[in-house]
């Protein structure tokens, strides 16, 4: 990573941020509402279980929150990356960038960092929204411990971003990933939601956190390693 690489990365982050914010005015609130809404279905199921005590219900509801970063980052980040990579090819801007000597890795990293950062912020807002709804409308106030904070704000986002890295690598490689991208988006989203329903409270939070952390870091590392091997010819799909 020399000076030119870093200079290009900064420029790409600047441009991607402007474009992402400008084009996601509807997608950002929709993602937050959609994720909170779909988690409320799980909330109703948990609250309806008569045999559970209030304390147990609060514990399970707290367990549900750890899936919010996975859902919001997978849903929004995936959509944003798919769109930005596809449009770059469609408008042939990628030709101009590569012909100007922009390193392809800087381009991918820039897009990935912006999508991850915006998705992370959305995830944090969604968690706050979900906790507030549970508190205000259902009267449950669960205690967010320091380990839960760590899982919500570091570990689960890392796992989600690791997944994003792998799918964006796939989008970078494939000629047209729109169909696959939409399938990944829905399958991942609904998969995580189902997973949260079934296993929300089954496993100890710390164990889930540790496994997620390892997987997340491995996925990000793997993607950063593999991205260097994708040729320019492949990226522009000539």
């Amino acid at each position: 990573m020399n000076n030119s690489w870093i200079r290009c990365l900064k420029a790409i982050i600047w441009k991607e941020s402007i474009e992402a914010i400008r084009t996601s005015k509807l997608a950002i609130p929709s993602t937050i509402l959609f994720v909170v809404g779909i988690q409320l279905i799980s909330v109703y199921q948990i609250i309806g279980k008569q045999h559970l005590s209030s304390a147990n219900k609060e514990l399970i509801l707290a367990g549900l929150t750890i899936f919010i970063p996975l859902m919001s980052i997978t849903f929004f980040g995936n959509g944003l990356l798919l769109k930005t990579i596809h449009e770059e090819r469609l408008n042939k801007t990628i030709h101009v960038l590569l012909a100007s000597g922009v390193p392809p890795t800087a381009l991918w990293v820039g897009k990935f960092l912006v999508a991850s950062t915006i998705s992370y912020i959305i995830s944090a807002i969604t968690i706050s929204g979900f906790v507030s709804v549970i508190n205000l409308f259902f009267g449950y106030s669960f205690n967010i411990t320091s380990s839960l904070w760590l899982i919500l704000l570091v570990i689960m986002p890392l796992l989600s971003i690791g997944m994003l890295a792998v799918v964006s690598l796939l989008y970078w490689y494939l000629k047209d990933a729109r169909t696959l991208g939409s399938i990944i988006q829905m399958v991942a989203f609904l998969g995580v939601w189902n997973f949260s329903l079934k296993f929300g409270s089954k496993y100890p939070i710390n164990m889930v956190g540790l496994i997620s952390l390892v997987i997340g870091i491995l996925l990000i590392g793997l993607s950063f390693t593999l991205i260097k091997y994708i040729s320019k010819e492949r990226i522009v799909n000539v």
Binding site: N91, K92, V96, A99, S100, G101, V102
Partner: peptide, 14 residues
Amino acid sequence: GSSVSVVFENHGLY
């Protein structure tokens, strides 16, 4: 690459 500028047939603008 920084000494080269290209305008392709498809304008390549955002």
